[in-house]
Each structure stands twice: as structure tokens, then as C-alpha cells.
Design a protein around this nucleic acid. Structure first.
Lengths: 333, 333
DNA sequence: ACATAAAATGTAAGCGCTTACATTTATATC
DNA sequence: GATATAAATGTAAGCGCTTACATTTTATGT
């Protein structure tokens, strides 16, 4: 591999000049620039980015930590992020935390020791305190999908309360009066918020939230199935089921089907996230859209702006959910 | 950030010694090792991996190029790969090629200029010749899901012929005699192979492949829907539909439903890949399992073995598909 | 044409490590 | 205890760049 030195010799200029044309900042005559460029071309020169990083103290890489590399939620997020960065010549180093505190902390350590210029964190298990402490370090980071008061300006989140509200409001507007609810794990902020939105919608329709008609799941498919079974056993009389995410809605639907309940005629159901397979299941699941790809892009732009001082589209931290109407909810008279 | 120099001063030893304990290769007395270790701990020292890379000419990073970061197929693959690498302290730099020749080539360039020690390539648009040429360069790579004769030992593939055979054989064994087939784009090797397997199974059952009952799709959902409509219009008399992947099967099912065809009672259907949402759709889709996560892990192991000279589980390039029976195929008498 | 300021280029010192080689220290042999 | 040998440690060069500063060239004004 040719080095900058060989280029400079071939072009008959100094190292510094070659470096200058590479980073095309400084003032270089057109004629010398040409000379250098053609020398580069002739040698098939490619700058060694490691050396660049060491000398400039900037690795041009950003770390991305997600819970899982697979799954319907993270794919679009990563896609959005990669698109933004590659257009800017930054690369993304990826790690998975598996929703485990130890693993998440290790991954962050790993990414930092890899000299990432910035981090995009989608973490669930790590404590707020840890992140606040981390924010005092020298590696800037942005947090996706989690709100921490002290770090508010770097938390990119969805308005979950409003999303929860929209879902339930729609169900109520379709004439349902007896709603069951399967929540996420209530130690998670987003689960709390979605539930809060649900309650708010109920209140507006002068309905009370009924503990008997609710179940605390864990955002995974199985818990949706368990939740449905539990609710079905303890109280038959609900006509609609609101789930705090699509996975649990899917599980609930499977379970309902096992109980020979027809959907949507006997039971209406709504999810949350608008994960891509919601339109494949039948009946196609009505849900709340979570613009996770846009939020990923915004996170990338945040880094671009704060770390690399690039001008970017206006930064935004709060995103709005939207109702997606499909076939799983029908009018109840 | 503390440097190796400060550690060496605190520990009262030379740079080289500190380096030695870091790379714990050379012979260092236990007592000096202790001294160095505690100095490191005291300073909260973390090696600068960029400097390590420059000095050692090894970046400990491997490039991963996939078509898309999202989608049901790549997630598990990336997950498998990341798991293997992080356990070894290697990191993965990720890029997406979007099945576009230019973008794929650019991404490869990018990854190489990023000093990746090795590459895992899942490319579709780039030519065989390009890859053969690339193999003469100094960055080793392994190819996932694509077979190139000249590069046979570094192509990790599924036995698609056998997979196609298994799917059709199963359908035939269920008593179906009139099968329709929706293939992938036939310029792709895997699409050809799956079709070849299909034909082989037909032959064994003394049935002819009927051009009228086949349609060339493009592996995307829409083409499955178009395919079904086309087949349905031109020939009503098939009782089972074999699709070259799950996406197209899903599209075909949606289209069939629009034509008020009940599945599986009126039409049996089988897919290929065992993408995770196949069990969510109804009827749950019978399909052929594609162990893409294991294949990803194998690719990672290939790199570990060839590039980093680590001992790994035995390398394997050919993976076997397996029939996954669900509800979308019923017995035809 | 000459002094002066501005622009272009060159020089050389790092960035934080690894590693070949040199030197010192410990261990074994007689 | 002197010598040969092996083990531990130190010295210093260099990995391929960037960049402050020094120097040379060019443009500007009179």
C-alpha cells in the first residue's frame, strides 16, 4: 500500500502538501493539487485512516449500541443511522447489549476504548446514574428511546403518553366501552407513559381504569399470550384489548385464537410500534406508528452536529406517534 | 486519558514492559506485572486502540457488508456475527449495500480504507469478477450466501437445491398433484437452485414441471402477490403453491385472500427461509429453515481462523436446510 | 524596481503504541 | 565462584499521518 510519503516523492512536493490536498482545507495551488492528485491516482493511494485518526485524534467512527441486532424494531433504526453516517464518511461500530446491565456497560466501555468520537445508545438495563456519570466523560453520546431529566437535551424520544392516548381514544371512538389493557413492564418509563395515555383517554370518556382488566406484561410476545389468557379467565366481558406493543398484541391474538375467539368480530385489538409485520398478521393489526427510523436519523444528526460540527437539519428530540388504522378494530355498537 | 508512558513512569518500568503486560505475551515477572497492573488501575488507563492498530498494523475490526440493516433476514445474521466477534474483542464495522452495484463497491472500498482486517460480504449486485479481483488484494474476505467457483473455500452457502427439493417433496407427500411455483429472479443462483430442487422433487414423483404454472418473482412481497394473481388468472387448477421465499409467500397469501380463497383448505402454500414472522401470519407458514444466524457465526469464525489465526470450531461452508411444518399445508386426498 | 504583506510550501515534532535489538539480571553448570 | 545460558527489562526506531511553525514564493502598492 502506498503511503503519503511515496505520493509526495512522486509528486515532488512535501508530505504536508499532500496532506493538505487530502484534507482540502489549506491553500494549495491548482497546479500542485493536480500534481498530487495524479500521483495519488497513479499509485492507487488510499489514506490510512488509522494513522489519520491517531494524528488528528478523531476516529471518524461512532459507536452504536442497541439491545439486539435482530428484531423488527432495531433494523430500521440502524438503517437510518447508517445511511446518514456513510454519506458523511463516518463509520458505525456496532454492539449489542441484550438488555443486560453488565453487557451494556461492557459494550459502552468497548466502544469508548475503540476511540469512537461519539456514541448512540439504546440502552435499557443501565441505570440513569451510570449515564449521568458517563456524560461527564469526554465521549459525547445521545440516548435513544429513553428520557433522563438531567440529560434531556440528548434524549431522543417518542411521546409515549400521547401514543397511548391515541390508541385508546380510537378504540373508544369505535364505540367500545369495556377495554382490557396489557401493559409493558411498569418499571420502564415507556410502559408507564403508554399506560398513562391510556388512562387519560379513558378519563376523557368518563370511564374508569379497571385493574381487573389489566395485566402487566414484559413487551415480549409470550407475555401477551399469558396476559390474554389471564384476562379472559378473570373477566370475559371486554370487547377490545389495548396492548402496549405489537409483540404482545401478536401473542394475545394467538392466545385468543386458541380460545376460539374470532377477531375482530368478537374482539378488537390494537398494538403499538407499527412494527413491520403488523400488516402481515390477520386481521392486520391497527397500531401506533413509532417513527424509529427517523429517530435514528435524528440521533445520527445530533452526533454530526455536536461532535463533528456539521450543519444538519434542525435537531429535534421529541417525536410524535401516529395512529395506523388497519383491520383489527371494528366498530362496536 | 492516561497513556502508556504515564503508566510506565508510575510503575517504574519501561514502555516496553507495560506493552508486554498489556499483550500478555512476553515473559514478565509476576512482581513487575503486578506493579504495572496496579499502576494501570490507579490511572484508569485504557489503551488507545488506534495507536495499537497503527503500530501493530492490525485494526481488530472486521467489516460487515449486508444488503439492508433492516429486514428479517439480516438481523439474525448480524446478531450471530457480532456475538462471535465481541467475545474476541474484535469489533464490527457495518455498512449497507442496498443490492446496488455502485453502493456495494463503494462500501467495500470504504471498509478497506477503514483498515478492516477482514471482510464479511453479503453482496448481490457486484460481479463475480469483481470479487475474484478483490480476492487478489490484501484484505481477506468471506462471502455469505453466494457461490463463486474460484472462491469456493470462502463461500458460505446453503444447499438451496436440497431446500427446494425438501419443500416440494413435502407438498407432494401431502397428496398434492397440481403445484404452482413462484421463483426468485432467475439470474440469481439461489433462485435457480431452489427451482432446480423443485423440479427434482417433481421428477421423483413422475410429474412434469409446468411453465404455465410458474412465475418469476423477485423475492419481494409484491412480486408474490403479482405472481399469485397471474397464476390464478391463467390456471385455477392448482391446489398448492410453492414459493421460493417467505416474503413472496406472504404476498401470495395476501393476494389469495383478496380472491376469497381460503387457506389452507382451498390452497396450501409453502415458503422458504423461515423468516421469524412466518409463525405470526395465519395460517402459520410452513417453510424451509435457513440457518442464517449459524452461517453468520461461521463466517465470523472463518475470519477468526484465517485472519486472526485463532482456533475455532471446524469451518464449514455448506449448510443444510430443514423443513419446518406449520399450518399452511394440508393433506390433499 | 523595491519593500511589504499574503499565499504557498516545506520542516520536523509529535499522536500512543509495538517490537527488534541491546542490555541487564537471574539461573544453571562445573 | 567463574562462565555460559536463559530470562527479564530497557532503548529507540518507526507505524502513516497532522499541524504548528519556519521558509520560500508570489502578489501588491508605491
Amino acid at each position: 500500500m502506498a503511503t503519503i510519503y511515496e505520493v509526495s516523492k512522486l509528486a515532488g512536493v512535501s508530505l504536508a502538501t499532500v496532506s493538505r490536498v487530502m484534507n482540502n482545507n489549506a491553500n494549495v495551488t491548482d497546479v500542485t493539487r493536480k500534481k498530487v492528485m495524479s500521483a495519488m491516482a497513479e499509485l492507487g493511494y488510499r489514506p490510512n485512516s488509522i494513522a489519520q485518526s491517531l494524528a488528528s485524534n478523531c476516529s471518524n467512527s461512532v459507536g452504536l449500541l442497541v439491545s439486539e441486532l435482530s428484531g423488527p424494531f432495531y433494523g430500521p433504526m440502524m438503517g437510518g443511522i447508517e445511511t446518514v453516517f456513510r454519506a458523511q464518511g463516518k463509520h458505525v461500530i456496532i454492539a449489542a447489549g441484550h438488555s443486560d446491565q453488565k453487557q451494556e456497560e461492557q459494550a459502552i466501555e468497548f466502544l469508548i476504548s475503540r476511540n469512537c468520537d461519539g456514541l448512540i445508545l439504546h440502552v435499557e438495563a443501565v441505570t440513569d446514574e451510570y449515564l449521568i456519570e458517563l456524560s461527564k466523560g469526554k465521549t459525547p453520546f445521545v440516548v435513544l428511546n429513553r428520557y433522563i431529566n438531567e440529560l434531556a437535551d440528548r434524549c431522543i424520544i417518542l411521546d409515549n403518553v400521547h401514543g397511548g392516548y391515541l390508541a385508546t381514544k380510537y378504540v373508544l371512538e369505535q364505540g367500545h366501552k369495556e377495554l382490557a389493557y396489557i401493559s409493558g413492564p411498569l418499571w420502564k418509563k415507556d410502559a408507564q407513559d403508554r399506560l398513562a395515555g391510556h388512562k387519560q383517554a379513558l378519563r376523557e370518556h368518563n370511564l374508569d381504569f379497571n385493574e381487573q382488566l389489566s395485566y402487566e406484561g414484559n413487551f415480549m410476545e409470550d407475555s401477551g399470550a399469558h396476559g390474554f389468557t389471564h384476562l379472559y379467565r378473570s373477566a370475559h366481558n371486554f370487547t377490545a384489548l389495548v396492548c402496549a406493543n405489537d409483540e404482545m398484541a401478536t401473542g394475545a391474538m394467538a392466545s385468543a385464537r386458541e380460545h376460539h375467539i374470532n377477531m375482530p368480530s368478537q374482539l378488537s385489538i390494537i398494538g403499538f410500534d407499527n412494527v413491520f409485520f403488523t400488516r402481515h398478521i390477520s386481521p392486520a393489526l391497527s397500531t401506533i406508528n413509532y417513527p424509529i427510523d427517523d429517530m435514528g436519523k435524528m440521533a445520527a444528526n445530533w452526533i454530526l452536529s455536536k461532535v463533528y460540527k456539521k450543519t444538519t437539519p434542525k435537531l429535534q428530540t421529541l417525536f410524535e406517534p401516529e395512529l395506523v388504522i388497519r383491520q383489527s378494530i371494528i366498530r362496536h355498537q
